[in-house]
Design a protein around this nucleic acid. Structure first.
Lengths: 205, 205
DNA sequence: CTGAAATGTGAGATTTACTCGTGTTTGCGT
DNA sequence: ACGCAAACACGAGTAAATCTCACATTTCAG
């Protein structure tokens, strides 16, 4: 269930593989998932429909491959942030700001892809499971930070998970659908303030 | 774009309309959205495929109608909660508990429908806009409560929106996908504690 | 009773995901 | 250079799903 039917062995096939994925990313972004046909993907990629199905067993596999790529990028970015946090060990406010700004950056980096994966797509079990894996990974790392800062409470894992889920939803809304009369910057500042208060209370300095 | 092609005028057509929607709810719940065909919906409803397309212009319209129904129910439930809050005017902790428990109840009431609308479905622009409308409505009501309790901060609307988005995401995760080793009850209690701290800090009694 | 509007029907037109038999290119041993 | 097997590419065709439309039936006002 890797979403890949055949790993390319020659360089030309690697090129068609890339072309197909790139075409899929473009068309999904332009027309949405259901609005895109596999034939159109093959056409824009400049390959035959048969070649597409040689590498991707079905339409959803294209989406899975794209999500894989996107989540690897996201994972790498976040890993870097956590690595820096573990080196510098800043206070709660700085730590929170780093995490939230990183989340904002992920949403602003490729809004089309984010919309595609989180809004316009039938979330299959496979996609959900990939997503939960990233979420769990992040929650674990966050729990480590909370514990270090002494704000983990009785259930650091639980608190970290709620932080990850909450911040993701709030930032998603703030960046991709800011409501009438509220700038996304204002909202992001409010998000930081809210979580800072929620976490530091009862644990000053 | 109402998702309804023709409003029924006679009672028999109302009956077929109901039968179609009920069949769609069942099959979508059993087989998922993409796993359900419009012909099967018509078959289970005991009507011809033509009748289905007389009332619903396409498959997605079935989903939209179901979401409409679900959101109306949710809206009614929440309205009742807010009405009670405005009468009894309880303190912050009780208010928060009411709101969060209401959200939990909504998720537990019909998990299949919730999963269908929020996970297994390609979220069209129409569906998203309906969802945002409910979210905005809720945020406005919550903002009123926060202001009454003196915890609105400089941007009560912003804070309320973040609360609605955050709690929805957290409760959704806690109820529909509690992680290994954490009961959803524990998580819900943690959600309450977290928001209570976030909101009451700096504004004791 | 009558005609017109509302409702119901289902064969089939159209679209789309996906297959498969066949042709072409590449790498490699000799 | 040559031949050959494996990898790669092709695209008409198949199966299955969505949706249409011309026609049949039911309802009801006058």
């Amino acid at each position: 269930m890797t979403g890949i039917r055949k790993k390319p062995r020659q360089q030309r096939s690697r090129a068609t593989w890339d072309a197909i994925l790139e075409a899929a990313a473009q068309l999904f972004g332009e027309r949405g998932y259901t609005g895109t046909t596999t034939n159109k993907v093959a056409e824009r990629a400049g390959v035959s429909i048969g070649s597409l199905y040689q590498y991707f067993p079905n339409k959803e596999a294209l989406l899975l491959a794209l999500s894989e790529r996107h989540m690897e990028e996201s994972g790498a970015t976040l890993s870097a942030v956590f690595q820096q946090l573990e080196q510098e060990r800043p206070d709660l406010e700085t730590t929170l700001t780093s995490l939230i700004e990183a989340t904002v950056a992920l949403h602003r980096h490729n809004p089309a892809m984010h919309r595609l994966l989180f809004e316009q797509t039938p979330r299959s079990a496979a996609l959900m499971s990939r997503f939960r894996r990233l979420e769990t990974l992040m929650a674990t790392a966050v729990a480590g930070q909370l514990t270090r800062l002494g704000v983990g409470g009785p259930h650091p894992e639980a608190r970290a998970l709620l932080l990850v889920q909450g911040v993701e939803a709030q930032v998603h809304g703030a960046v991709l659908a800011p409501p009438e009369g509220l700038s996304s910057e204002t909202l992001v500042e409010e998000i930081k303030a809210l979580w800072l208060t929620a976490l530091r209370s009862g644990h000053p300095r």
